[in-house]
Design a protein around this nucleic acid. Structure first.
Length: 466
DNA sequence: TGGGGTTAT
DNA sequence: ATAACCC
């Protein structure tokens, strides 16, 4: 129930992640606190946030769009736009109608196919991964990086009287002055230099600009990255932490407090961060449950001990389409076939094999954000043929998906859907031929990090299905 | 409100 | 399978 990205991962979750990353088994015995770095309060975390990412990708694809107000459209929405368009009043998630009204000269490109965005997104994550493997993705356009170890290394290379040579890169939140006798100040300052190097590399190698926020945890890094906005970076020194968090206008602006939680808090009369900070913990726990209550209470003080967890390869692939109406089985089948064809192509490139398939729908009757889904295992004979471009695979999967469909939708009764989505998940690396007992210890090694569409995994001699 | 993602229960 | 959360 709690936001996974901000909460402290359980030991089991971390263990699972490590296994995915191909780390050795003995690291499972290491206590959580020691996982990436030592002292949790002296970490250096950077949040890297690309400027209007989809619009940037489009401008790189077609440089003629560069000095025009540009919006990226999905269905009837302008989901993002460049700064040229923002100056003219276009906002994210604005209706195309309203955007055109505000800005008649707005140029629109269709952004419903995410392929190029996804590819560029992974290029960014890979690039950051060259600094350290501790890179966690958040959506397509944001990454957290734990810089603690890199900072430590650079710190050791410095002479103690060299410190005056260390300079800050970018802004300091609140214009707070740096104290070079304060070791955390120096660490964050080195962090700011690394962040600048990262942004420079992103620009030089990929042509992308973005913001960065440097702080002692993920929450603060994320909050501070947005302080100076396009293509700038900001470091938060510990003394200004309360100013940053109390500067928010509403608790909903705290990442980790979403729509539902914010509604609950509002019902309790809590609107501002300060109100949350000072609200009775006992009552909060009674209303929200102990886990959520304690968690958001900590967030309200800017405390966040969650680790940067390397994202590695994706856990699932999905393709979805929304529409005004779909009310017949034939129509649905057609859409499902389209989605499936796209997915098969993607899964083929990834190299791993999905063992589960899921169909999701949205009914027109469903109010705000309500989806239903049915999933089932993919039969092993289908899994085997998955990468082979075999047409039977398509047929088998469509049949499975239509069964799932009829399980959710009574096709003998009138229905009205507004979204269909097909998802492949439970992805497993290809298994070696069963045999030697050593295989049990060596099996999942998906530790390489090229996700950009090529076959990045090691294609050794004999891989076989289980 | 799109077209994606994640984890917890 | 659903319900939160993130972009």
């Amino acid at each position: 129930m709690r936001n996974p990205l901000w909460s402290r991962p359980t030991r089991g979750r971390l263990a699972a992640r490590r296994v995915r990353q191909g780390l050795r088994a003995f690291s499972l015995a290491v206590p959580d606190q020691a996982v990436p770095t030592g002292n949790i309060s002296s970490r250096v975390i950077v949040h890297v946030d690309l400027d209007c990412f989809y619009a940037q990708v489009e401008m790189i694809s077609n440089p003629e769009l560069k000095n025009k107000p540009l919006g990226v459209q999905q269905k009837s929405l302008v989901i993002t736009c460049n700064y040229e368009a923002r100056k003219l009043g276009v906002k994210k998630c604005m209706k195309v109608r309203d955007a055109k009204e505000k800005c008649p000269k707005l140029v629109l490109v269709n952004g419903e196919d995410l392929t190029r965005y996804r590819e560029m997104s992974y290029k960014v994550t890979e690039l950051l991964g060259e600094f350290t493997p501790l890179v966690e993705r958040l959506g397509f356009d944001e990454n957290f990086v734990d810089l603690t170890q890199i900072v430590e290394k650079r710190l050791q290379q410095l002479q103690s009287d060299d410190l005056s040579a260390v300079t800050m890169s970018g802004h300091v939140y609140n214009n707070q002055s740096v104290d070079l006798h304060d070791t955390m100040h120096v660490r964050l300052l080195i962090g700011s230099q690394i962040a600048a190097e990262m942004r420079n590399t992103m620009y030089n190698q990929l042509g992308l600009t973005g913001c960065a926020g440097i702080a002692s945890n993920k929450l603060l890094a994320k909050l501070v990255s947005g302080v100076f906005k396009p293509n700038q970076q900001t470091v938060l020194l510990p003394e200004s932490c309360q100013d940053l968090i109390l500067g928010l206008n509403h608790v909903k602006e705290i990442p980790g407090i979403g729509y539902k939680t914010a509604k609950c808090l509002e019902a309790l009369g809590i609107h501002t961060v300060h109100e949350l900070q000072t609200f009775s913990s006992k009552i909060l726990e009674e209303e929200l449950g102990i886990s959520l209550a304690q968690h958001i209470k900590k967030l309200s003080f800017g405390e966040d001990n969650s680790s940067v967890i390397p994202s590695g390869q994706p856990q699932s692939f999905s393709e979805e389409e929304s529409f005004k109406k779909c009310s017949s089985e034939v129509e649905a089948k057609k859409k499902i076939e389209e989605l499936l064809a796209l997915l098969l192509h993607r899964v083929c490139q990834d190299g791993r094999k999905p063992h589960t398939v899921r169909l999701s729908i949205r009914r027109s009757s469903s109010k705000y954000y309500n989806r239903e889904s049915r999933q089932c295992p993919i039969p092993s004979h289908v899994i085997q043929k998955l990468g082979t471009g075999n047409c039977d695979v398509m047929t088998s999967l469509v049949n499975i998906l239509m069964k799932l469909f009829r399980n959710m939708v009574n096709v003998k009764m009138p229905f009205h859907l507004t979204l269909l989505s097909v998802c492949f998940c439970n992805l497993k690396a290809l298994n070696r031929a069963k045999k030697g007992p050593m295989d049990y210890y060596l099996t999942p090694s998906s530790s390489t990090t090229s996700h950009s569409g090529k076959h990045s995994f090691k294609m050794k001699d004999t891989y076989v299905e289980d």
